[in-house]
Amino acid sequence: MTVTVSPLTPLVAHTRAQVLDLIRTPIAIISTTIFPTLAFLFFVLPQGAITDNAVASLSVVAQLGVFGVMSAYLFGYGIGVAEERANPWTTYLRTLPIGPFPMTVARFLTAALASFLSLLPLVLAVALLTKAPEAFTSGELSWARIPFALAMVLIAATPFLAMGLCIGYLLSSKAAVAVAQVLNFPLAFIGGLMLPPEMFPGWLDVVSLATPARAARDIVIWALTGEQMPGSTLPVLLGWTVALTALAVWANRRDEGRRFR
């Protein structure tokens, strides 16, 4: 008797396993979830000039939202993939005739869940402690911009997903931790996620515009507030996405060639 298995069955199984693994490591959830909110509470909330301005508050939540998702992707993929490569069970799973699709998509869904969780306390804190909601209640901005901006955060962070895969497939788990940490904060600073680019000197602003973090920031702020984004935003974001995705694919094939030859 032939048993027909739905193509979604392996995907559901892998997603469930990875979500359970994430839940069983609460520190991983707390670290990626709470840091953007802490950054808001310590560095933004004391600045009345920002919190009393609805649009400025929305720009801040956009910046920190991108930072939270970027961190989730860099650490979730970079460290997670590197640890899985050293895990005999994961090595066995990669030899099964189901292809890389279920594991890859399951990892993406799990990272997206972690990213969404990182946005919830930040959005709640900004809504309660700033005048950001007035931008929508006054009719200045449409409520539809909120789900649009949330979706745009995940899309704009795609280069960091590919960057995390590159780290995971090219480095050991110990090296991946160090590299993810080294990349995370400098990218956040130079991309205008910690300080607004308006505070940058001219030369630093030019460098910032060429980074994926700045492109992600600008496109999310545009989605949330309607503020005009630089003309370089889309080409830079697309260029980094294509380049890092190509590197991630090469790194994956290189890893398979070395370990499954």
Rank of each mutant, 00 (worst) to 15 (best):
L22P: 00
A251F: 15
A162C: 11
F260N: 12
V44T: 05
N87Q: 15
W240Y: 09
P7I: 08
P235N: 14
F136K: 12
A56C: 13
A106E: 02
T233M: 14
A127S: 09
M1R: 04
T25P: 09
A243T: 04
L247T: 00
L96A: 10
V153S: 05
L38A: 15
G191P: 07
A114G: 08
P201N: 15
M194C: 03
G202I: 05
A178L: 01
L122R: 07
S115Q: 01
T37P: 02
P147Q: 12
V123Q: 15
A112S: 13
T225I: 00
S173L: 07
P46I: 00
T211Y: 07
N184R: 12
R107M: 13
G192T: 05
G192P: 08
I27A: 11
V177I: 03
L238E: 05
R258A: 01
L113Q: 05
G191R: 12
W222T: 06
A188T: 04
A151F: 14
L120M: 13
T25S: 13
F189I: 00
Y92W: 14
H14Y: 11
F108P: 03
G68N: 08
G99F: 11
L22G: 01
V177L: 02
Q47L: 03
Y92S: 14
Q18R: 08
G191H: 08
P46W: 01
T110M: 11
A213R: 04
V206I: 06
F75R: 13
V60D: 04
D205R: 15
V206N: 03
D21R: 15
G139D: 15
F160T: 02
T15W: 10
G65T: 00
M103A: 15
I190C: 04
I50S: 10
A178D: 00
P121H: 14
S173Q: 11
V12Q: 15
P133Y: 12
A114P: 00
F75Q: 03
V12F: 13
V5P: 00
I219H: 04
A39G: 08
D205P: 00
A86C: 13
P10N: 08
T15P: 04
R258Q: 07
S172K: 14
A62T: 00
E134Q: 12
I190Y: 07
G139M: 14
P230L: 15
F42T: 06
I27Y: 00
S232H: 14
A82T: 06
S57K: 08
V69T: 13
H14V: 05
T90W: 12
P97L: 11
A17Q: 11
L150W: 10
P100D: 02
L109V: 01
A175T: 01
L129Y: 12
L128T: 09
R253D: 15
